[in-house]
Amino acid sequence: MTARKLVVFDVDGTLVDSQDHIVAAMTAAFDAVSRPLPAREVVLSIVGLSLGQAIARLLPDCATPEQEAATQAYKTAFGQLRAGHLSPLFPGAADMLAALGARDDVLLGIATGKSRRGLMHILEAHGLSGCFASCQVADDHPSKPHPSMLLAALAETGVDARDAVMLGDTTYDIEMARAAGMPAIGVSWGYHRPDALRAAGAGRVLDAFGDLHAALADLWGAS
């Protein structure tokens, strides 16, 4: 009997194009502590980290109370933005999830820096609630690139690391996969450059979701 495979997806920057919400919410966070917002590319470079760690990285000179105030302001602003406008899926994401979900030999998972509440909102809004056998969120784990999320996904699904793969857009995703003993595939449409993903250990960087079928076939053999 062929062992089941597990494909674990990052969310922001991989499945969902949430950059406008992230930048707007981070603007509110910096306004709350009267600090100038860094350049857009700097703000987006921390996507994938848990929120507290992301704020600490962007505001290293701020005392803990200021960082906590910025974190709360971000959460409030992001919630308001989310209620008013849904961040879209990247082109091809829905079709790819449907195709993989229809396979008997593949399970799908998520490993995200989002909170569980934020993840459930986006999955429900896009009609994806039943797609994933494992959903690992920032509420329950250390921030990426710690491997805790992926180790939990492997344990929850009963899949061996060699039969799993992480798909993400940041070096944090790739480093997390390597730390968990899993292969990793990067995507070029997210928040870190393809060359940085390759340098971090991505075996392949996709330019479109349609390329994932061939990448998985190369990784695990055609089935």
Rank of each mutant, 00 (worst) to 15 (best):
R103Q: 13
D17E: 13
E66V: 04
G221R: 13
M166Q: 11
G221D: 12
L89G: 06
L212T: 07
G79Y: 08
V23W: 05
L44S: 08
E156G: 08
F9N: 03
L49W: 03
L108I: 14
P88C: 07
V159P: 00
D140N: 09
R193N: 02
A208K: 06
L128A: 08
S115C: 04
S34D: 15
V187T: 07
L107T: 05
P88R: 08
P145S: 14
P183F: 01
L86R: 06
A32N: 03
L6I: 05
W189D: 10
D211T: 04
H192P: 04
S148A: 15
D163R: 03
A214Y: 00
H141A: 13
R35D: 12
S188N: 05
M182G: 00
P194N: 10
L197Q: 09
I110T: 09
R193I: 01
A111F: 06
F78C: 01
G190H: 09
G101N: 10
K114M: 10
V7A: 04
V137G: 02
H213W: 07
L100Y: 13
T170N: 11
H146C: 14
A155Y: 01
V16A: 09
G186M: 10
A208L: 02
R57Q: 14
A25R: 00
R117I: 08
V187D: 05
Y74Q: 03
H21W: 04
T171L: 03
A111C: 05
P38I: 06
M149S: 03
A196D: 10
A196E: 11
G92K: 00
L15Q: 13
G203P: 02
P147S: 13
D207K: 14
L219Y: 06
G127R: 11
A70E: 03
L107P: 02
L81V: 01
A102Y: 06
Q136L: 04
L86K: 02
H192K: 05
A200K: 02
L107M: 15
A98P: 03
S50Y: 00
V165Q: 03
L97E: 07
P183H: 02
P65Q: 10
G109A: 12
H213T: 14
T64E: 15
A214C: 06
Q72E: 14
V159G: 01
D169A: 06
I174R: 06
P38Y: 06
A93F: 09
S115V: 04
T14N: 09
E156Y: 04
T27K: 12
M1L: 11
H192Y: 07
Q19A: 15
D140W: 00
G52R: 13
Q67H: 04
L151H: 15
H192L: 06
P36R: 11
I55W: 00
D61A: 14
D195M: 01
V8W: 11
G130A: 12
D169Y: 09
T71G: 09
R103C: 09
S87E: 14
A138I: 08
E124G: 14
D12N: 07
M26N: 07
R204W: 03
T157W: 04
T112F: 13
S134K: 08
A177H: 00
